[in-house]
Design a protein around this nucleic acid. Structure first.
Lengths: 229, 229
DNA sequence: GACAAGCAGATTGTCGACAATCCAGCAAGA
DNA sequence: TCTTGCTGGATTGTCGACAATCTGCTTGTC
């Protein structure tokens, strides 16, 4: 008999499903920054009572993509240019660290997974599914964190990723054009397969900076718009 | 009239108070790792209904110091040696980054605050209040993060700090002797006041390693004990 | 017309009760 | 003896209703 190790069974609480639904709505930009979440309205739409909805919202507040003001409401976080700068500069540091840790851990499974995720990005790009394109690109990026074998680092990166995904989605929705980043992933994947760790670390920085400039320009636009109100 | 900027007034929801109470109980080790939190019992003790208690617990789960298994219960996280290693190695990286960012931001207020917090540590040490000693030491350490002017970094460090505080408290409770770290803070403070950034970064690593070895030994003891069960 | 007090509506926070699920223990059968 | 199925009690998940708070408008007064 083949050796099968079963993972934990799916969470079947309403709360978990609500969290997933809300997170997706926020990260894809369907819920816009600053927007208020009306508990009664949402609970009726989802055919759920307010209790599990509120618990789900509390989780997302701690996750950093919602913000809560007592007796006033819960809102999608606002996105400022500084937030994006901060997130990206931290991401650089974490990337270097993750590559350093993951480097000696690379094995055949790592390379296979690398190819698989790279393929997923290319497929999403061909299908012009921008939302999925962002998701797959971040998953490709996250591989080094999964292989770094540092649970705290992984958890930290996942929190950061939530925001980055939101920023990209907003950027994409605002401009309504696909994210470029065509050949960038090619060299990234190639370097992770190579033998020069420092080169991979260096490229991670550059790669980030490419998208960063574009995203930052968008954020500055946001700043001006919100300051008008 | 003097320019006064008022901060937000205190949260007056039961939920917020419950979060504070539970967090403190966990971080001081009054609630032991792996221990189950019975909702009914705690809500009765606190004279609160289960709704705000559950919401508070959801926050602490996302904060990383509780873990929840659907229909089974919510538990204080287990502490493994690997967790401590992971947290500390990430802390090193973040420290270097924080010092780099905070370095040019140092001003008179920074130095004053540095002295103030250093004094608080010494006072707690003299009073042999170990819980407060841990708190103040971490607050001293956190100054560079507050001055780094990177909200995401600060938030990340605060999450990490929760765990570190818990680890130290457990360590202290287990050995029932005050944490040494007497002269270490002296040089740390002196270096942050100095002109050599690289030296400060380097010391931060060493300083960490001192406590680290001790803490790690304790964690390995934990490992053995739990593996016996 | 300007401004403060107060009221009504809406929304969030909290509560107590019910439903769904789990777990330990026991009984029945192979 | 081991396994399987059942059952009662305890605990978590969810619900609907009530209380506390905020907000905008109205009203009354100057």
């Amino acid at each position: 008999m083949a050796k099968l190790d079963f993972g934990p069974i799916a969470d079947t609480t309403r709360r978990a499903e609500i969290v997933a639904l809300l997170r997706r709505a926020i990260l894809t930009g369907q819920l816009e920054p600053g927007q208020k979440l009306n508990e009664l309205r949402i609970s009726e739409q989802m055919r759920v009572s307010r209790a599990p909805l509120r618990e789900a919202m509390r989780e997302l507040v701690q996750e950093g993509i919602l913000t809560s003001i007592p007796y006033a409401g819960t809102f999608v976080i606002d996105v400022t240019a500084k937030d994006i700068i901060d997130a990206y500069s931290l991401n650089k540091v974490l990337d270097e660290f993750a590559i350093e840790l993951a480097w000696p851990q690379r094995d055949q499974r790592f390379f296979d997974e690398l190819d698989r995720r790279h393929e997923a990005v290319k497929q999403a790009t061909r299908a012009v599914d921008t939302t999925r394109q962002i998701e797959t690109a971040l998953q490709l990026h996250g591989l080094i964190y999964e292989w770094a074998d540092n649970s705290v680092l992984l958890e930290t990166w996942q929190r950061l990723t939530s925001r980055l995904q939101m920023y990209f989605a907003l950027h994409q929705r605002a401009l309504n054009e696909p994210v470029p980043a065509e050949g960038v992933h090619e060299t990234y994947v190639a370097l992770l397969k190579g033998a020069d760790m420092r080169a991979a670390q260096h490229h991670a920085r550059e790669h980030i900076d490419v998208d960063f400039e574009e995203l930052l320009a968008y954020a500055r636009g946001l700043e001006k718009r919100t300051s008008k109100n």
